[in-house]
Design a binder for these strands. Sequence first.
RNA 1: GCGAGUAUGGCGAAAUCGGCAGACGCAAAAGACUUAAAAUCUUUCGGGAGAGAUCCCAUAUCGGUUCAAAUCCGAUUACUCGCACCA
Length: 808
Amino acid sequence: MDMKEVERKWQARWEKAKFNNFDEKSDREKKYVLEMFSYPSGAKLHIGHWYNYGPADSYARFKRMQGYNVFQPMGFDAFGLPAENYAIKTGVHPKDSTEKNIATMEKQLRAMGAMFDWSAEIKTCEEDYYKWTQWMFLQLYKKGLAYRKEAPVNWCPSCNTVLANEQVTEGVCERCGTVVVRKNLTQWFFKITAYAEELLSGLDGLDWPEKTKLMQKNWIGKSTGCDIEFDCETGDKIRVYTTRCDTIFGVTYVVLAPEHPLALKITTEDRRAEVEAYIAETAKANEIERLSTAREKTGVFTGAYCVNPLSGKRIPVYLADYVLYSYGTGAVMAVPAHDERDFAFATKYHLPIVQVIENRNGPTELPFVEDGIMIGSLNFDGLYGEEARDEVANRIAKLGKGGKKVNYRLRDWLVSRQRYWGAPIPVIHCPNCGAVPVPEKDLPVKLPYKVEFRPDGKSPLAKCAEFMHTTCPVCGGEAERDPDTLDTFVCSSWYYLRYADPQNTKEPFDRARVNALLPVDTYIGGAEHACMHLLYARFFTKALRDMGYLNFDEPFKRLVHQGVIMGPDGNRMSKSHGNIVSPDEYVEEYGSDAFRLYLMFGFSYTEGGPWNDDGIKAISRFLDRVEKIILKAYEYPDKNAPYGAEEKALDYARNYAIQKVTRDMDAFSFNTAVARLMELCNALYKYEALPVKNNTLFKAAAKDFLLLLAPCAPHFAEELFEKIGGKGFIFEQEYPKENPEKLVLDETEYAVQVNSRIVCRVMIPSGLSDGEIEQRALALPEIAEKLGGKPVKKCIVVPGRLVNLIAG
RNA sequence: GCGAGUAUGGCGAAAUCGGCAGACGCAAAAGACUUAAAAUCUUUCGGGAGAGAUCCCAUAUCGGUUCAAAUCCGAUUACUCGCACCA
């Protein structure tokens, strides 16, 4: 079969018949199958794209044959740093390189032959899309979910922009690996923390990988504790957060983060110089240095004292950068006896260590950080763990000094970027009116083409006078636009909604359409998005629901992560490893179907693994074998007899394959699905070799086989279907359903064990009782010999599998 | 450091609820066809012992539960991923 020609032929026919387009008028049940859209950083599709889209498309086609009205759109996440960095390096404008890359990738995606509904295509960098991204910003702003504040933020000196918390890993920029520094900047944030609790509790109902749910759960980081106020001798109140209020009688000092507003205020004159020096020094430290847990803790005494609200003791106040300003209250009560960090700090600065918790399961070794019995704590003595914390928290609350408090590690999402290639933030800064949102009727705020985007630490748009200069929509006076652009993750937080109504010029989407089509039934993409895109998209969905636009709570009902295809050497594919395998040459030689099928067969889909050149030849051979046997089956004239043991065996193989392939396709267990197809192919060959055949059955089995294979090798299957006289598209055919009667065998082979060791095997007719099966086993000469007259104490029968005789 | 996951032939892997370990392939070997090669077809293919029927060992390591463990429990080792001073 000339696969190149066959692919072109069927792609053209599908296209002409608009066969891949979602049929909105259909009354079949909808199935929204979505793969994460492409980022057009390089021109060509790499193995990762094929591995994501190929098998996922087979799943979508499988669902279509099962009778669902499948919607599978595709688009481009087109804004972002790589295009801009490429522009800085080469001088090619990001818009030009992006459009060129998209054109190439789109061509390749079409050549893949996936069932993408191109009529719904989205490109996030186009005005008719980012207009609505800006609209989203305005709605969040109206709802109080977008706000501007000055805060210490993560700054990547290489990318010349701020980064979200989620984009910093181990203190370095997730994108370029540069060490991130802290800067105080006024930036736009989305209040994702307002949804912390629901983002957490909503995970329970999702059909997502457990690991991904756990990652989000840890990222949100719910912690239940207690706020406690320590009155300062200066009259100020220091509020601390602790999860261990049962240790309050062991507090020997209180620590503020160096950025804490009270830090300088409470500092005594004699300590001022030293404290100022310390604050300056810690401000300089970069995130890597500061976050290193191995690093020796540093701190400084402020000269101030405060009072423990329960014990009345006088307590010194320190500054130390092991306390984070951005979490809790930015201040902690230090209990060196029961916290490892406080213990290290107290040891270094010779502060007292007072034990107030006793191990109830053995000797107490300090620092003792587990739950224990309160001691040296006045009338709280003897209380344990959770109960102890409850009692203490209640007392604190009664004194009006705080009380129970829930905190989350999740921070608000910083969305400003000091970069060019993104959606401009739709805000105008007026000297009289302050930050004013752009009126919706003025959207989009267009991204100008002619801009100097070489980085110098300022937003490139700030240097574009015609963009910046504008009038205030409130007072009409001269004003300036916000020079920053939105994080590209904002664009991808709602694209799955836009697919439902991509050409709408009046609103981002029609509510009825979106609510009919969404949520996404199955979402397929990489695991690296666990705490970024997948979290942000959930936030957007919930926020839009609360604004009345959506009537569902979660965007993605089922989530599947494909694994990673590594280089042949077992390393991640990269230029530096020199181990990149390009799909193009394989597709050229073997065709798209063979390549996809190999990706499905050679790896466990969610695991991935190293690339291996040999397997694809085997797949190509398999397809040849398929072609031969199917054409052969259709050469014989119809003859519906005989129906003996051989026919029964073929019918069993056929129905067994239907049952297993259906189950495996549903479970994204593509490698085993293909294995079952190969088994059926082998069974067909075996049957073909017989001198006398039931041709009608043979043909029916061959046809079922082709239907089962169709989603995995779509062009190939269409071509064969046509050759055997099929009418229309094979994907209009109904997916085969197994006949359970044909799966009942007359007899099954049982393994017969004596004392759990296999002695022999025996065929046993179906439908016998356990007792009858036991009698059959006992009647075997090998068994009688093995038992040697010993009585059988117990007999275990596993239906269809084995008999185990336990003899004394 | 904390959390999670993985570990099965020469290789990719498979094994519903604990029930015949290694399905399906790759590679390899032998044979058939061929002047020859390729392609195709047939057979063998975890390790050890044995002429053989068979027997013993084997799912990272050690131990446990069970009639029965790749699967459950405990400990150990190695690797992968996520978080990382979150009080």
